[in-house]
C-alpha cells in the first residue's frame, strides 16, 4: 500500500513495493492468469467455487445521487456561508489536517481492510457460483 505523493516539503514519497489487500487480490487472480480448461480436458476436476464478487463499476442512479450529494457538500470558496456550514467546514478541516501525508495512506489502507472484512463475510456464504462438471471419462 503505497501512496506516491509529495510530502509537505515537496519531495515525492518513494513508492515501496507491497502486496495489496483482498480486493486487489480479487482483481488480479480471478480473471487473470492461464485458464487451465484450455490446456486440460480429461482430468479436470469439478470443484465448488464460492461466489466471489469482483468489483465492477456500473453507473447507476445511486452513483448519480452520491455524486450530486458530494458536489452539493463541496465547499467552494466563493460560497456564502451560514453558520451550520461554517461549522461543518471546520470539522472537515480538522479531519483533513489529520489525514495529510503518510497518515492518509494508513487511513486508506484501513479503509481497504474494512472492505476486505465486508467482502470476507460475503465470500464465506456457501453459494456456488458455478459448478464445473467433472469430466473424468476414463
Amino acid at each position: 500500500m503505497t501512496i506516491v505523493q509529495p510530502s509537505a516539503g515537496g519531495a515525492a514519497g518513494r513508492p515501496s513495493s507491497s502486496g495489496g489487500g483482498l480486493a486487489d487480490v480479487i482483481d488480479t487472480i480471478l480473471d487473470k492468469g492461464l485458464v487451465i480448461d484450455a490446456y486440460v480436458s480429461v482430468s479436470l476436476v469439478g470443484i465448488e467455487l464460492l461466489t466471489i464478487n469482483a468489483r465492477v463499476v456500473v453507473a447507476s442512479v445511486d452513483t448519480y445521487l452520491r455524486f450530486a450529494q458530494a458536489v452539493n457538500r463541496l465547499d467552494l470558496s466563493e460560497q456564502q456561508k451560514g453558520l451550520p456550514e461554517v461549522m461543518q467546514d471546520m470539522t472537515q478541516g480538522v479531519a483533513k489536517g489529520k489525514t495529510k501525508g503518510v497518515a492518509q495512506g494508513a487511513l486508506e489502507a484501513a479503509g481497504d481492510k474494512l472492505r476486505e472484512f465486508a467482502a470476507g463475510e460475503e465470500d464465506e456464504e456457501p453459494v456456488p457460483r458455478r459448478r464445473r462438471r467433472s469430466r473424468e471419462e476414463y
Binding site: 501512496i3 506516491v4 505523493q5 509529495p6 518513494r14 513508492p15 502486496g19 495489496g20 488480479t28 492468469g33
Partner: peptide, 24 residues
C-alpha cells in the same frame, strides 16, 4: 511513476502494488 505522483499530487492518489507474478 513518482513524476506522475508529483504532478498529480493535488488531484490523484497513486498506489503501486508489486512486484508480483505476471498475471496480466
Amino acid at each position: 511513476l513518482e513524476d506522475f505522483g508529483r504532478d498529480w499530487a493535488e488531484r490523484i492518489t497513486l498506489r503501486l502494488i508489486g512486484p508480483q507474478a505476471p498475471y496480466d
